[in-house]
Design a protein around this nucleic acid. Structure first.
Lengths: 182, 182
DNA sequence: GAGTACATGTAATTAGTTACATGATTGA
DNA sequence: TCAATCATGTAACTAATTACATGTACTC
């Protein structure tokens, strides 16, 4: 389906960007909440998009001689991106989740081992939720208007928080059920 | 990380099962809510587990001459599985989500195109949620006790419903925000 | 001067998908 | 007898990760 292709085209369409900054976006910025790719996947894909004439770049010299490539989308690239954006896809496969897999097999664990697992997960998801909520509060004083980049940022960040909330609620229900065994 | 290996070992540890039934479990049964693999990935992995002596099989003749392989876990396989089960892993990467990706880029769409997308997603997730809720109601009259296979089934099914609820709630918030633009 | 972040790539391997391939059984 | 499902596999390809590889710039 080449989804990475469209993730890159969209990012570059937002504003000119380097491969390094694209990788950072996937690793720790807002996009990390719904897509990811290592730099070793990003650079070859950028080369491919260049070959397909969907993007172009300008060489920038940073400091004395360090080169960086600032990528810009071409009209052809923009057209392909918007075309993809409007497509309606069937619901994809449910995402894989190792912790749910462990939960499915929880009858092979003692109750105390499973409780330990649940507390550990709860801690991690609470931490992540707090981080996301702080990001939201810092970045948005009000709900951005639809049609702006900020709206996209806001919507996916809110979605990520709601996803964490739901995961945390599920973990608590599991904890409750385990602790109420006789 | 070879997670598929442990998914297979766990399933086989639950009760002896054929490769065909494992594939069905990943494609449309309860495991599909948190893991998946095509039969073309399952069969080679089963062969590998055989080589590693973690599982063994018994040939069953179905009808006149159709052969099927009923896999059983070995003591070595059980030990490796339980060892994996107790391990605590860091939170993995956030799952990829194409619809969230499209939402992130929603400023490249007209409001009506984005609304159409949201309604389409809403329909799909509502359908899935209804299906999951029906499954839960049909299979469980009461909350199963911890320590049974049924508890694992129940916990992950409940988690899947909560995940759908949360996704639906997010889609509704987005719809609200788009329709309230001036 | 040392450590961290910036910046860009390739190579080897593992994971996963799509397509190819074959044949038996069951129920309408 | 026809279609759906049962049942098992391999081949070719795409996607993604881990490891290798190199060098610059900035801050303390």
């Amino acid at each position: 389906m080449r989804t990475l292709k469209y993730a890159l085209l969209g990012l570059i369409d937002r504003e000119p960007i380097t491969g390094y900054d694209i990788s950072k976006e996937f690793e720790k910025r807002i996009m990390a909440n719904f897509w990811h790719a290592k730099h070793s996947q990003v650079y070859p894909e950028l080369k491919r998009l260049l070959d397909e004439e969907l993007i172009s770049f300008e060489l920038i010299i940073q400091g004395e001689k360090m080169e960086k490539k600032l990528y810009t989308i071409t009209p052809k690239g923009h057209a392909e991106f918007v075309d993809w954006l409007l497509q309606d896809e069937p619901l994809g496969v449910t995402p894989k989740d190792v912790f749910r897999l462990r939960t499915f097999f929880s009858d092979f664990m003692s109750a105390s081992d499973f409780e330990r697992h649940l507390h550990s997960q709860l801690g991690k998801h609470n931490f992540k939720k707090d981080y996301l909520e702080t990001s939201l509060d810092k970045s948005f004083k009000a709900i951005p208007k639809y049609g702006t980049k900020e709206f996209g940022d806001y919507a996916v960040l809110l979605g990520a928080i709601m996803r964490e909330d739901s995961y945390i609620a599920w973990l608590k229900v599991c904890l409750e059920a385990v602790s109420q065994r006789e």
